[in-house]
């Protein structure tokens, strides 16, 4: 456990160093990262090129995608590392800012943030609000208490139970859509501001299950700090879809630049490296897509 914590700190330090250094000047010089791409940089909106900064909002309660380091302030995980890699290619600094998940798309749409990097599943519904640059593939899993006291094996077993989910997630949508199948034994669907709050309900027995994306769910079930309390109800992944970076509609320059950068990262192999590092290789995509929501 301690070793893991140390490695997390180490990663945090590496990420910190990367984002702190002057991107254009040092990106090419440093390690095995993807080289800075001037053409992509030039595609960025002038405002971004001027500030040299992109601000992505995230809810850092979704390991291994993103979480707080032990200091309670640094955000670490697959997605911060990916953001760093993208920033290097684009020659800008990508800041990860914590914020509520539920309103994240709106904040992007209204220009508060440049994007969201918080395991946002790309759906047709959401594409109405923002464009998506998709980088990952995963479905939804059911998390239950270790030992599975409520004997839940699939979605239909959730009927009559309290189920917790994070506000505004596809999992919350899925639960609501599943409610129809429960008949006179409806689920009590409780939604919380962060995924951690939802998990707290499950940990303390106030909820029978939590729905998470598969990578986050399996991390909980396997990480030594949490595996005593949680397990997967089954290996099934419901409604698999793509994770994407929401970008304001109309900001095609940023969208395309991000897509280009993502392709570069994927092509360079660093993408695969980061997936391996965080144990989420199952969700690899072959190339970046824009608005790749699967039609229902």
């Amino acid at each position: 456990m301690k070793a893991l914590a140390l490695s997390l700190v180490a990663v945090a330090l590496v990420a910190g160093c990367g984002s702190a250094s002057s991107p254009a000047a040092t990106a090419q010089a440093v390690d095995n990262g993807v080289p800075f791409d001037q053409a992509l940089h030039d595609k960025l909106p002038p405002s971004v090129r001027n500030t040299g900064t992109l601000r992505f909002v995230t809810d850092a309660s979704y390991p291994p995608m993103e979480q707080f380091a032990p200091d309670g302030r640094t955000i670490v995980g697959f997605e911060p590392d990916l953001a760093d890699a993208l920033g290097r290619v684009l020659g800008v600094k990508i800041q990860m800012v914590t914020g509520p998940f539920q309103t994240a798309l709106d904040r992007v749409a209204d220009g508060t943030y440049d994007g969201v990097l918080s395991a946002v599943t790309d759906t047709e519904e959401r594409e109405k609000k923002t464009d998506f640059v998709d980088y990952f593939s995963a479905g939804t899993s059911i998390i239950v208490q270790r030992g599975n006291p409520s004997a839940i094996a699939e979605l239909t077993n959730l009927c009559g139970h309290v189920v917790a989910a994070e506000q505004g997630t596809v999992q919350a949508d899925l639960l609501h859509r599943s409610q129809s199948g429960c008949g006179d034994r409806p689920m009590q669907i409780n939604q919380y501001k962060t995924n951690a709050d939802a998990l707290l309900q499950l940990r303390t027995g106030r909820a029978a299950a939590v729905l998470n994306d598969y990578p986050a769910a399996s991390y909980l079930a396997e990480d030594s700090r949490t595996s005593n309390y949680y397990q997967l109800a089954s290996g099934a992944q419901y409604e698999p879809g793509l994770f994407g970076i929401p970008v304001a509609k109309g900001n095609t320059q940023l969208r395309d630049a991000l897509k280009g950068a993502l392709d570069k990262v994927i092509a360079s192999g660093q993408y695969a490296d980061l997936l391996t590092r965080w144990g989420v290789s199952d969700g690899a995509v072959k190339n970046a897509t824009v608005n790749g929501a699967l039609t229902d």
């Binding site: 979480q67 707080f68 309670g72 302030r73 962060t194 995924n195």
Partner: peptide, 12 residues
């Protein structure tokens, strides 16, 4: 003592 106010472990 740092205050980790939320379940996410964020220090405030």
């Amino acid at each position: 003592q740092p205050i980790f106010a939320r379940a996410s472990g964020e220090a405030i």
